[in-house]
Simulated assay, not measured.
Amino acid sequence: MSDALCVLATGGTYAARTLYANSEETLHSAKRPVLLNGIPDLMARPDLADRALTVTLQRIPAAQRRAEKALMDDFEVVRPRVLGALLDVLVGALKRLPTTELQQLPRMADFALLMTAAEPALPWEPGSFMRTYAAMQVRSASLILDDEPVADALRMFVDAQGQWSGTVKELLKGLNETVTPTPRPQVDWPATPKALGVSLRRLAGALGKAGYSVMHLGRSNKGERYALSKMQAHPAEASQDARETDGDLGVLGAHQDDAVEQTF
């Protein structure tokens, strides 16, 4: 499901044989934003977390709850102004987009550029979106790594070794001998070098945000080789923002009321 959502977020195509034809092919292309709603953290895979924005909604006190009809009646009154405000923001973003640049582009590069270009029209302080976005990704990576026994073992292994390079088979042997989690999870723990290699590729991005480098060195006659190390330049700024904002893009909403008043 995570892989399918990633494809849908950045665009993908499904090919199938055309009905009642032997040699024709029909392509179905899709690229859409997706809303996921739930109480637990739904970003269980690093690749999906890199493509997601997180907003934590606060519980509504009993005194502030409203019937749906009353809520929708009020929404219909303000809907034209809300639409006008969104269009004004989009116009401002498109006007600034050709001259907007970022020092480092995240995975959702075009989206990040558009949101950065929209900052003056919202209005947000320059750079506030990318700071909050980076902090949110650090928080998401931390939550993912906390639930991964392989990630815990790799961080302990790198902390003890400093730097390490070798084959996946040698790494699995070292993890089993030195920092195997206790009690050892029979289901989640990789039993073969191939399974550990899959975990390394899947967790490399999240480990990088936590300050650990996982670099693929190619394949030798002994198997796939990796280099593990602790990054000298840990993303401290993003981590600090994560502690201050809890990695939640909802904190940007503090400026949205001002944007609505100015636009109206």
Rank of each mutant, 00 (worst) to 15 (best):
F157V: 01
M156F: 06
K169E: 15
A117F: 05
S213D: 11
D146I: 11
P126R: 07
G38W: 03
M1V: 12
M136F: 04
L252K: 02
R225T: 15
T263R: 07
T178Q: 06
M1I: 12
K194T: 14
Y20V: 04
L217P: 01
L8V: 05
G12S: 03
Q240A: 15
L97E: 02
Y212S: 02
G250S: 08
G197S: 08
W189H: 08
P46N: 04
A52T: 13
V158F: 03
K222Q: 12
Y212I: 04
L145M: 04
K95V: 11
K173I: 10
V158S: 05
S165Y: 05
L36R: 07
L35F: 04
V138H: 09
A204S: 13
G92C: 07
V89R: 03
N176A: 11
Q186A: 15
A62G: 00
L249S: 03
N221R: 14
T13S: 02
V7K: 02
D110E: 14
P80Y: 04
A254S: 09
G38Q: 05
D159M: 06
A112C: 11
A112V: 12
V150W: 02
E244P: 03
G208Y: 01
A160D: 15
S220H: 09
A85Y: 09
E25W: 07
I39Y: 14
Y133N: 08
L102A: 03
E177W: 01
A16N: 05
V55G: 00
K222D: 08
T13K: 02
A141I: 08
A16S: 15
W124K: 05
R66L: 13
A21H: 09
G208K: 00
